[in-house]
């Protein structure tokens, strides 16, 4: 009970202390977008007959004809009431766009993360058990390769091989074959929605569609995860309690998995949190290559068009997710290692 209330107190405090940071992020993005050269009104009034008057009209519609401090105050008030503005690139309210696109990004990121963890932890452990061996070098090479090849290159390669040459994968456009019907909108996660309605052929279609983009993302983050696992495994394997465990004759499996790996996972957990947040924001290239309707490609399109509202909302969203993930990791950390909770 006291453990739980301790965690709750810490979470509450962490969330409170993150409010100034979020506010700062909102203000900085807001100002930055307006300092950047390029007038969205000119960009969007690009019809064959759009003259000065039309540009002024859009500027007025967007509130850009007012001084920046007033624009900022109005924006903050809007954000506080949950109104993130209107996107000119899609013509929809930003909140509506985000609601539809965030699950797509999250589903992709989660899957990629799971694939990355499933690959990197065993690889890291294998490398740590025989440091300097060919296995270790092979893992190192794989990791380096994963980091070196940009995601859009690996993505295009995967498409070329598995879709174009072999024809194994479905066409790399969006979350589901365009001729198939989408699941009822329950959570927005296609895999979950299909599973909930028991439509397993739909589930399989969504899953195969998800596989290639998730793999190209997973390859990219393989390195930090595998390297961190290897390093912390090495440190743990060299410590006294492992030697003791070995000397009392415990099975190798028990020593490695139960004692060493569990203790070595703490830093991996931390890095997983960071990797997740980065992936969510940085998967724009994967989203572009696979026509994945996610938030990152949405924000990039908006940025290129100087469409303020979606970019600001995207940065705010990323900051919020970053805060939440960090809090979550903190909580997990406290559970895994009780010493962290002592104040």
């Amino acid at each position: 009970m006291s453990v739980l209330s301790g965690i709750a107190r810490r979470v509450g405090r962490r969330l409170l202390s993150s409010i100034p940071a979020l506010l700062g992020v909102v203000v900085v993005t807001f100002v930055l977008m307006r300092v950047l050269p390029g007038d969205p009104a000119v960009f969007f009034a690009s019809g064959p007959s759009a003259g000065k008057e039309e540009i002024e009209q859009i500027r007025h519609q967007m509130g850009l004809d007012r001084p920046i401090p007033i624009q900022l105050a109005r924006y903050l008030a809007d954000v506080a009431t949950g109104n993130l503005g209107h996107s000119l690139t899609t013509g929809q309210p930003v909140t509506q766009d985000m609601e539809r696109r965030l699950p797509a990004s999250l589903e992709l990121t989660f899957t990629a993360l799971v694939i990355a963890l499933l690959l990197s932890v065993p690889l890291g452990v294998a490398a740590a058990l025989r440091p300097g061996s060919p296995v270790d070098h092979a893992v190192r090479m794989l990791c380096t390769l994963g980091v070196c090849v940009p995601t859009f290159v690996s993505g295009l390669l995967l498409i070329y091989v598995f879709y174009y040459l072999l024809g194994w994968a479905p066409d790399p456009t969006a979350r589901l074959d365009i001729f198939a019907s989408t699941p009822p909108d329950i959570t927005g996660f296609y895999l979950v929605d299909f599973a909930m309605t028991g439509d397993w052929s739909g589930w399989w279609a969504a899953f195969t569609q998800l596989l290639l983009p998730a793999i190209s993302m997973a390859l990219f983050v393989l390195a930090p995860l595998a390297r961190m696992t290897r390093a912390s495994m090495l440190a743990v394997l060299g410590s006294d309690f492992i030697r003791t465990a070995q000397s009392v004759g415990l099975s190798r499996r028990r020593v490695v998995i139960t004692y060493a790996l569990r203790n070595a996972l703490l830093p991996v957990l931390t890095i997983t949190g960071i990797v997740f947040s980065t992936m969510l924001g940085a998967n724009v290239l994967v989203e572009k290559v696979f026509s994945w309707p996610g938030v990152a490609s949405y924000a990039l399109d908006a940025l290129l068009a100087s469409d303020y509202a979606p970019v600001q909302a995207f940065v705010l969203l990323m900051a919020t997710i970053f805060v939440l993930v960090n809090v979550l990791i903190d909580v997990l950390y406290g559970i895994a290692d009780p010493r962290v909770s002592i104040e």
Partner: peptide, 21 residues
């Protein structure tokens, strides 16, 4: 008619060459 946004030109080319678009 299905109109679909596929941002990557290489992917669009692949789709047409495969006969999917």
């Amino acid at each position: 008619i299905i109109l679909q946004t596929v941002p990557e030109p290489a992917t669009r080319a692949n789709l047409i060459e495969r006969g999917d678009a």
